[in-house]
Design a binder for these strands. Structure first.
Length: 970
RNA sequence: GGGCGAGUGGCGGAAUUGGCAGACGCGCUGGCUUCAGGUGCCAGUGAGGGAAACCUCGUGGGGGUUCAAGUCCCCCCUCGCCCACCA
């Protein structure tokens, strides 16, 4: 293993044995800090807006086409950065700098996602207020990132914890709360369904255009009754939701924080599934638009697939089975297999279970339900488990044939999906087949599997399912599928079968085609301290009201009581008390909400928002970070994020490039899209989507090692290799390969790299390691390669003894000039496509060629420096001054035009073609670049190797690919 | 179990999408500089054979299409990520 802590300065620790002006880490350090101060002082990276507080319309016009580039913003952790963190940031910085040089007005900054658990945990342990640690961490992280030379507009760097920021997070919440989803209103895609102000709904009730649920006139409803009706429509609403309640911690925890044995990740306390009143967001209303608009986004198919699967839209039917308890409704994607339904299964939690359970089965059912309740979801979802279940004693009627089929309960049916009840078709579903086999239930055959299905399973073709080893899942002709008014027999594919039965079910009134989603509404409240308070107060009747906009923000109250109240770990009946609940002075307020009720006493909502809230809209605040009148000026949003029909006709708008890790593929990206669509529907933004183009950067990987106890050991002290095994202090350790991380004890700090090589070398190395979207292993010893390259570059332009430029004004020779222009051509293409690794390789080739010349001609030196400016901005600035060109661009290379290739120099007069004999390269021939097929054939046939191979005969075949190669088949 | 993606020198990775495999960098070998180590510089470096020109083999394994395959098709193996009793 490499040992970065032994690295001091790669040039050696003595300053006397190398020339005074060699490009060393010390020189890099000096010039990097100097240029960073200069950029700050000059406001070099400040980006003008068309309107609002940061407006400079003339400069906007001057800078050129707009480009909005954004990284997923970090949580300001206290443990500092390692070299893996800035990979994506360096990529976006290089791209932003390149785009500035090619005539773009680039919006590029970085904020902080600073609400959340770690600061709160730390506060509970130390008593330090989370605001204090958060601000310290942000300051530290800003310093570390600044040292990398990132070209952020620092005026636009926001923190989600700043009241001037979360004021607008609360404002957006109010907008969402005060709106409803009208499924019949036309939206911008030409289909229907969009958010509208809740006042529109109230108007519909008032006018009688829309009937109230119980038919009474709106005017006759009490305030609470009205709120109850509206709550069923609001996009943000309070509802009983199943949550993980952990009395030992005094809080609700996320599914991810619950261990496999149903205990809390932290503290190892029991966790109980409980229904509790929580804030929810009606994201399910947007399920279709969230799926459909994926087609308009320039995102990878992998991420789109993940989002589609998460939303989980499936087409099917709801079918009613009559029972003693009433109609049991099931959801099925295969209504065409209804004739094969030989029993039903309800989730143990299904509300009909009590009334369906007969006296004889009561004990068995009660026992089973108790067991199911104590089981964690994780257990229930282990599909390798044997099927368990119990008969309720009751029967239901299959609507297609009137048959009485038994109703069972089993934990493989989940209350949270579909209707919590299924019809079991054992011949066509593996789970149902397994269940029927375990409990000896009938398995009627309703499809004729093809012959090779039987062959595959090694059995004789037969419709006797007792010979089948498993269910048949597929498309095949129906059998035994007919009643007096419906006949599926003879239909050979499931699409037709489904159409036929859906029509019949609807005609009979016993079912209807429907669409089901896996997506659930979004649980939006947390009983913690360090988050955005809800801008909501509750009146004495228990109805919620949003605080008027001019009273925002509702500031998080200052307190030293950050901890939630904890209970006996086994006290399942306890209820959460959030830290804010205890602040009586804050909780109880007298306010005039401006709704005509005058000053009233209210209780503030004591929940806080989840960490996702602040990240749902931060790109909008980057646009107008200091605007006090709006979350951002309409004109600015339209400029930076408006739809680009020049890119594609159905372009949804949004930022031009969003870079971040794939771990946010679902939750963050889905939540942000949802909020953005609500803002669009309500007319607050011109873009339909927040992120037009998404790019997932890879990770820096490293080996980590654990000892016998499973504890991580310092990876840099581990000895050995894969063959001989690894040891730490003589003891064997286990290697695991994954993302670099401080807690894995394999993190390399960027500070070590600055000290040994400088920031430019680190930037260049990270960009040269491979494609930006690929994960790559970190090897500290590899970094020296780019350091040596920068030294050669420096030496090609600067005298190491005097520090003076050695660039000459004589013109370059033809070969060098051609190489330069070919390099420019490739580098432009590659940088534009975020392929920095190949761009760097080309630039190194050019520089290597310069090394062989007696002196570097100015006509090559200048474009070379400009091409490198996005990658290694500090040394590029320094060299730009040294070669004497800084005066032309106001002292900085940042807005200098990127070199352009002369097309005339990209073509050669003559080209060398490989000559293949039977597909193998055996010779080469030089022909003029515009040589026709005939000329090339003649040249090839005259080649000595070809003459020898042909031995006087004629070639069997002669293939000429003009400009590429010749293949002679003998 | 399902979905997505990837396997190229000792290592990280190139290869204009079917047309000269291994660009560029690390490492390694030899040389120069140095009292020496390090730094820096120059040259070589896929494997095997040969004094050399050159020859043979070679992109996880097996088969196929083609004048031509890392690239396209079929089967298999390995690894990574996401989802996972979703009816």
């Amino acid at each position: 293993m490499s040992e970065p802590d032994t690295i001091t300065d790669a040039s050696g620790d003595s300053s006397t044995d190398h020339p005074a002006f060699r490009y060393t880490a010390a020189l890099a350090d000096e010039l990097e800090l100097r240029w960073q101060d200069r950029w700050d002082a000059d406001g070099t990276f400040e980006t003008p807006n068309p309107a609002g507080p940061l407006a400079d319309p003339d400069l906007v016009a001057d800078r050129g086409e707009k480009l909005f580039v954004q990284d997923m913003f970090p949580y300001p952790s206290g443990s500092g950065l390692h070299v893996g963190h800035p990979l994506g940031y360096i990529g976006t910085d290089v791209y932003s700098r390149f785009k500035r040089m090619t005539g773009h007005n680039v919006l590029y900054t970085l904020g902080f996602d600073a609400f959340g658990l770690p600061a709160e945990q730390y506060a509970m342990q130390t008593g330090t207020h989370p605001a204090v640690t958060t601000n310290e961490n942000i300051a530290n992280m800003r310093r570390q990132l600044r040292r990398l030379g990132l070209s952020h507009d620092s005026r636009r760097s926001v923190s989600t914890t700043d009241p001037s920021y979360y004021r607008w997070t609360q404002w957006i919440f109010s907008q969402i709360f005060n709106s409803w989803y009208d499924p019949d209103a036309a939206n911008e895609t030409g289909s229907t369904g969009r958010a509208r102000p809740i006042a529109d709904l109230v108007a519909q009730f008032e006018s009688g255009e829309r009937a109230t649920p119980d038919g009474r006139p709106w005017a006759d409803l009490s305030a609470s009754e009205r709120e109850s009706v509206l709550s069923d429509h609001r996009l943000a609403y309070v509802s009983d939701a199943p949550v993980n309640w952990c009395p030992g911690l005094g809080t609700v925890v996320a599914n991810e924080e619950v261990t496999a044995d149903g205990r809390s990740d932290r503290g190892n306390f029991p966790v109980f599934k409980r229904n509790m009143r929580q804030w929810m967001m009606r994201i399910t209303a947007y399920a279709d638009r969230l799926i459909d608009d994926l087609d308009r986004l320039d995102w990878s198919d992998a991420i789109k697939t993940m989002q589609r699967n998460w939303i989980g839209r499936s087409h099917g039917a709801r079918v009613d089975f009559a029972s003693a308890a009433g109609d049991i409704t099931v959801f099925t994607t295969r209504p065409d297999t209804l004739f094969g339904a030989s029993f039903m299964v309800l989730a143990p939690e299904h509300p009909y279970v009590d009334s369906l359970t007969t006296a004889e089965q009561a004990d068995a059912v009660a026992t089973y339900r108790r067991e199911a309740e104590s089981k964690k979801d994780v257990d229930r979802q282990d599909e390798n488990r044997e099927k368990t279940g119990v008969f309720t004693g009751s029967y239901a009627t299959n609507p297609v044939d009137g048959e009485q089929i038994p109703v069972w309960i089993a934990d493989y049916v989940l209350m949270g999906y579909g209707t919590g009840a299924i019809m079991a078709v054992p011949c066509g579903d593996h789970r149902d087949f397994e269940f029927a086999t375990t409990f000896h239930l009938p398995i009627p055959a309703i499809q004729q599997p093809p012959a090779d299905w039987f062959t595959e399973h090694g059995i004789e073709p037969s419709l006797d399912t007792s010979t089948w080893p498993t269910a048949f899942v597929g498309d095949a002709p129906y059998v035994n599928s007919a009643n007096d008014s419906l006949d599926l027999n003879g239909i050979t594919n499931k699409a037709d079968g489904i159409d036929a039965i859906n029509a019949w079910l609807e005609a009979q009134g016993s079912g209807q085609a429907t669409i089901n989603y896996k997506l659930r509404d979004w649980l939006f409240s947390r009983q913690r301290y360090w988050g955005e308070p809800f801008p909501v107060v509750w009146d004495e009747a228990g109805n919620p009201h949003t605080v008027p906009d001019d009273m925002l923000p509702v500031e998080l109250p200052d307190t030293d009581q950050f901890s939630p109240r904890t209970f006996d770990p086994d006290d399942a009946d306890s209820n959460p008390e959030s830290p804010l609940d205890r602040l009586d002075d804050w909780i109880t307020v007298e306010l005039d909400l401006g709704d005509g009720r005058g000053v009233q006493q209210y209780r503030r909502d004591s929940n806080v928002m989840p960490q996702w809230a602040g990240s749902c809209w931060y790109q909008l605040r980057y646009i107008d970070p200091t605007n006090e009148n709006r979350f951002c000026e309409v004109e600015n949003e339209a400029y930076w994020m408006g739809p680009r029909t020049d890119v594609r006709p159905d372009h949804p708008g949004g930022i031009d490039l969003y870079v971040g890790g794939v771990e946010h593929a679902v939750l963050h990206l889905l939540y942000a899209r949802f909020w953005h669509k609500v803002l669009f529907d309500l007319g607050h933004v011109a873009s339909v989507e927040p992120y037009a183009r998404l790019f997932n950067q890879g990770y820096i990987m490293a080996d980590a090692f654990t000892d016998a106890r499973g504890i991580y050991v310092d990876a840099f002290q581990v000895e050995g290799d894969d063959e001989s095994g690894y040891t730490f202090e003589g003891q064997p350790v286990t290697r695991e390969y994954g993302k670099m991380g401080k807690s894995l004890k394999n993190a390399v700090s960027p500070d070590e790299m600055y000290e040994a090589y400088g920031a430019d070398t680190l930037r260049l190395h990270e960009m040269s390691m491979g494609p930006l979207d690929a994960s790559r292993p970190w090897e500290t010893r590899d970094v020296v390669g780019m350091y040596r390259f920068l030294q050669r570059l420096w030496r090609n332009l600067v005298d190491e003894e005097t520090g003076e430029s050695t660039v000459v004004d004589e013109p370059a020779d033809d070969d060098t000039r051609k190489l330069l222009h070919r390099t420019i051509d490739v580098v432009r293409t590659e940088m534009d496509a975020l392929r920095f690794n190949t761009a760097i390789a080309k630039i190194i080739e050019l520089n290597n060629a310069l090394t062989k010349l007696p002196a570097t001609p100015r006509e090559v030196a200048e474009p070379l420096v400009l091409m490198l400016a996005p990658l290694v901005p500090h040394v590029a600035e320094e060299l730009w001054v040294k070669v004497g060109r800084s005066e032309s661009t106001d002292g900085t290379v940042t807005y200098a035009p990127f070199p352009e290739a002369d097309p005339a120099l990209l073509v050669d007069d003559t080209i060398e073609l490989p000559i293949q004999i039977n597909g193998k390269v055996r010779s080469r021939v030089t022909v003029s670049a515009d040589a026709g097929t005939g000329d090339v054939e003649a040249a090839a046939l005259a080649d000595a190797k070809v003459v020898e191979a042909l031995n006087g005969g004629a070639p069997k075949k002669l293939i000429v690919v003009p400009g590429r190669m010749v293949n002679v088949v003998v």
